[in-house]
Amino acid sequence: MGVVLDVKNVYRYPFQEVVNSYLNKYPTPLEKHVTDVKTVEEQSDSATGIVYRRRIATCNNVIPSFLRKFSILNVPNVYLEEESWLDMKTRVMTLKSRCLTWAQYASLNEESVYRECKDNPNWTEFIQRGTISITGAGILNCVLETFAYTFLKQGVKKSISIMETILQERYGCPFS
């Protein structure tokens, strides 16, 4: 089966400010579930100017206790891998994220793009597609997909709110 979540948002801040804020967003007191983000690989292509990063995020396990009765779900932390490609020439940052924990049972992926807004070069457009597909859990597949979808949807809203707060704290009122 599987579920898909599509999100679009415009930050009324320039691309560079949004990218800097995104790359330094976590950990933050605004989100207690993301406890650490480590850059494990970073490369810059001198020919294209594209900066590639691979980061690992450590998050608290937020699965409800009634589902943690299944030993596979009863882990203290969840690990996410994020790959990003930052192209300052075209003013586009592309990201791909996936859940490393439970990879043999679930596919949780996000593909995101931050780019300079076509309507206003002082703004930044954010587009994200999240997909979730769970297998190997029998009758729980649908329950877990529903929980994951709900959590992802709430997480995206919270993430956008956190970005707006950080941008406003760092750079003041948004551009009109």
Rank of each mutant, 00 (worst) to 15 (best):
M1G: 12
V4F: 08
L5Y: 09
N9V: 11
V10G: 02
V10S: 04
Y13H: 11
V18L: 05
N20G: 13
L23N: 14
L23R: 05
K25Q: 08
Y26Q: 03
T28A: 09
T28M: 04
E31Y: 11
E31N: 13
K32D: 13
T35D: 01
T35C: 12
V40R: 07
E41G: 01
E41S: 05
D45N: 04
T48D: 09
G49T: 03
G49S: 04
V51E: 10
V51H: 04
R55G: 00
A57R: 02
T58G: 07
T58H: 03
C59K: 15
V62Q: 05
S65F: 09
F66Y: 14
F66S: 14
K69T: 06
S71K: 06
N74S: 14
N77T: 04
Y79M: 13
Y79A: 01
Y79E: 06
Y79N: 02
L80D: 00
E83V: 03
L86G: 00
M88T: 15
T90E: 10
R91Q: 05
T94C: 12
S97N: 07
C99I: 00
A103T: 04
Y105F: 11
A106I: 00
S107H: 03
N109M: 13
E111G: 06
S112R: 12
R115Q: 12
E116D: 08
C117Y: 15
C117S: 10
D119Q: 15
D119A: 07
T124E: 03
E125L: 07
E125Q: 06
E125A: 10
I127K: 11
R129M: 11
T131W: 01
S133C: 03
T135S: 12
G136E: 06
A137V: 08
F147W: 05
A148F: 02
A148M: 04
A148V: 06
Y149G: 02
T150A: 10
L152G: 02
K153Y: 09
G155Q: 04
K157H: 10
K157F: 08
Q168H: 12
Q168E: 13
C173R: 15
P174I: 14
